[in-house]
Simulated assay, not measured.
Amino acid sequence: MEFPVYIWLGPWRIHPHVLFEALSYFIGFRLYLWTRRPSEMSKLAGLQILGGTILGAAIGAKMLYYFEDPAATWEQLRQGNLLWGGKTIVGGLLGGLIGVELAKKWAGWKSSTGDDFVYPLIVGMAIGRIGCFLTGLEDHTYGIATSWIIGVDFGDGILRHPAQLYEIGFLLALGLILYPLYRSSRKAQPGPDGYISGKMFQWFMAGYLAFRFVIEFIKPTPHPYFGLNNIQLACIAGLIYYGWLLVRRGGDGSRIRANKPAAG
């Protein structure tokens, strides 16, 4: 196989990263519209929360990327380059979380909105990783060299861990594991104070962040922070938050106290 694996649609040759990233957004959003629970949220509140999510995700994805190689980032900025390229899924997820929580507080919405996003995120991320795999070396999402039989030569003559495929497999397994929570989430009704737990989203985030923390050890990216990289530091911060959240709520997603909204 020669990388990148371009996709031909009639006379057009489309780069796999462009195609599958577009598909991930489109299919993920359509799945969200199809599976979301009925809600009494006003259109204005919905737009405010959507805007907060998108803005937070965009900022988080870029800001975390800047810390991948601080020296290189500083040199690029010193030369006047704005570093338009590059983004991270972990930064997008954590930035989106901050954005949505701030927007919910602004809109006065108490219930969790995260559970409705879990399967759209899983499907969208898995589709996006297909594009990362087919792009090969250009995407910088591959793993370090390996002698395993599943090693893939992305074009430089070195067999590498197909980290993109590992992530797709993990996301599919996580989707199966979370299915019982999905069914209970569909039946959940707001309590007398209007809160819904968001338990499914909390476990999704904890699971994905734990996976990314581990998989980053086989990524050929700089690890300048005491043997860790920027993604792993963000994962640790996110795991501390969600670990605290789940422990304080006994793992069942119940609210911490009556005047505090559920995260996610």
Score class of each variant (00 low, 15 high):
Leu246Glu: 05
Pro192Cys: 00
Pro70Tyr: 01
Pro261Asn: 04
Ser197Ile: 04
Gly169Asn: 09
Leu121Pro: 12
Trp74Phe: 14
Gly51Ser: 07
Ser24Gln: 08
Glu2Ser: 11
Asp153His: 06
Gln76Val: 03
Gly243Phe: 10
Glu75Asp: 11
Asp139Thr: 01
Arg37Lys: 15
Val123Thr: 15
Gln232Arg: 07
Pro190Ser: 05
Ile150Leu: 15
Ile54Tyr: 01
Arg78Lys: 14
Leu19Ser: 03
Pro224Met: 02
Val118Asp: 11
His161Asp: 02
Phe20Met: 06
Ala71Tyr: 09
Gly143Gln: 06
Leu83Asp: 03
Leu171Asn: 07
Lys187Tyr: 06
Ala237Asn: 05
Tyr242Pro: 01
Tyr241Trp: 08
Asp115Gln: 07
Arg13Lys: 14
Ile231Gly: 00
Glu216Tyr: 04
Trp106Glu: 01
Leu245Thr: 06
Leu83His: 08
Lys104Phe: 03
Tyr241Ile: 10
Gly191His: 13
Leu233Tyr: 00
Arg129Ala: 10
Gly91Arg: 07
Ile49Cys: 08
Pro220Ile: 08
Gly238Arg: 00
Phe170His: 07
Ile215Asn: 14
Ile150Thr: 11
Leu55Gly: 09
Met200Val: 00
Phe117Lys: 08
Ile196Phe: 01
Ala145Gly: 04
Gly108Asp: 12
Gln79Ser: 14
Leu181Pro: 05
Gln202Met: 10
Ser112Ile: 04
Ala173Asn: 02
Tyr65Leu: 09
Ala263Gln: 04
Lys105Ser: 13
Gly131Trp: 15
